[in-house]
């Protein structure tokens, strides 16, 4: 799991530019699934056939990550940018970023600004060390997107790195594909695009799959850091079964089924009430005539920074929970 996570988090793939990460995932899972395809939006959809008695289940983990899109190259070779997804000023000041071609830069802000509250993204820039507009233009074009550069580190059984949101979820799906053997249900594993800019890939893939049940696999916040906002989720206390977030109120029966499976098998779990944010389940459950949906979340600290932290045991238990949910009959 560690290697897989290192490989996934180290691969480039901001929203709208998921080609490379999609290729990496496809190589990982090709031998374990019955069908695999990429749709018009770029979603990677893998199908694992059941024994014909179960339901059509769609699992979705998004493979895109947030990024910084170049909008202007100035005369001295500094790059102005705007955000792709939820880039926060605070988390980005003096972060190292990397482009698709390997060009690395540092993000800083106009130094005349005195008050940190006055810093907006349009007063920040990326410095790739270029000495002129020409030199910068040789490396980077307008429209290119950089992502946080943050190779995976280990600390006390926990992993720190970029793009855990949602490569941790991708890792869970990949591992589940590999471990899932005897399955009653027809399962569609979707590695979705453009979640960070509005759950867009999940919306179109859910429409095309038209599943009976939807399950999103994503990261969620925790309330276990100093003076954190109240939230009952802790790092290392097991995968979180989502009750609600800003995009979905999980179907009580899907939520109940997840809890039942976890309790039957003694898999540690926690219940997640997220007061903001959203995930692919938000798009899936409103598809066509409605798809009862839920979500399994990986607890994660410092989401949308270069240094997101997840717990190794949560990942292992997350896979166990997903396998348990999929193997059994799903009654709603």
């Amino acid at each position: 799991m560690r290697e897989l996570l290192a490989k996934l988090t180290g691969t480039y793939g901001p929203s709208g530019n998921e080609e490379e990460i999609s290729k990496v995932i496809e190589d990982e899972i090709r031998d374990y699934v019955d069908e695999i395809k990429t749709d018009v939006m770029g979603n990677l959809i893998a199908f694992k056939k059941g024994n014909g008695q179960g339901k059509r289940v769609m699992l979705s983990a998004h493979m895109d990550q947030i990024g910084l899109m170049v909008t202007h190259i100035d005369d001295n070779g500094f790059l102005r940018f705007s955000n792709v997804g939820g880039i926060s000023v605070l988390n980005t000041i003096n972060s190292k970023v990397i482009f698709k071609n390997g060009t690395i830069g540092n993000v800083s802000y106009e130094s005349e600004i005195d008050n940190i509250k006055d810093i907006k993204l349009n007063r920040m820039y990326i410095d790739i060390g270029a000495k002129s507009s020409e030199e910068a233009s040789n490396k980077v074009s307008i429209g290119d997107v950089a992502v946080y550069y943050s190779p995976l580190s280990d600390s006390n059984g926990r992993y720190i790195g970029g793009a855990m949101d949602d490569r941790a979820g991708c890792a869970l799906l990949i591992q589940t594909i590999k471990e899932l053997e005897d399955c009653k249900n027809d399962v569609y594993f979707v590695f979705s695009v453009q979640e960070e800019v509005g759950l867009r890939g999940a919306k179109t893939s859910a429409y095309s799959i038209n599943p009976d049940v939807g399950i999103a696999v994503d990261v969620t916040s925790t309330g276990d850091t100093p003076k954190a906002r109240t939230m009952a989720v802790k790092l290392g206390a097991g995968p979180a079964i989502k009750v609600k977030d800003g995009s979905v109120i999980c179907h009580p029966k899907v939520k109940g089924l997840m809890i039942d499976r976890a309790e039957e098998l003694g898999i540690p779990y926690q219940l997640e009430v997220l007061e903001w944010g959203g995930t692919d389940a938000g798009a899936i459950h409103l598809t066509r005539e409605g798809v009862p949906s839920g979500a399994v979340s990986v607890p994660c600290r410092y989401i949308h920074s270069a240094n997101e932290m997840v717990d190794g045991a949560d990942l292992e238990n997350g896979v166990k929970l997903l396998v348990a949910i999929l193997e059994q009959e799903i009654e709603l």
Binding site: T230, M231, V243
Partner: peptide, 13 residues
Amino acid sequence: LMVKDIDEKGFIK
């Protein structure tokens, strides 16, 4: 409303 957390004294957030 929805239960978000339960504190050590049994009060509901």
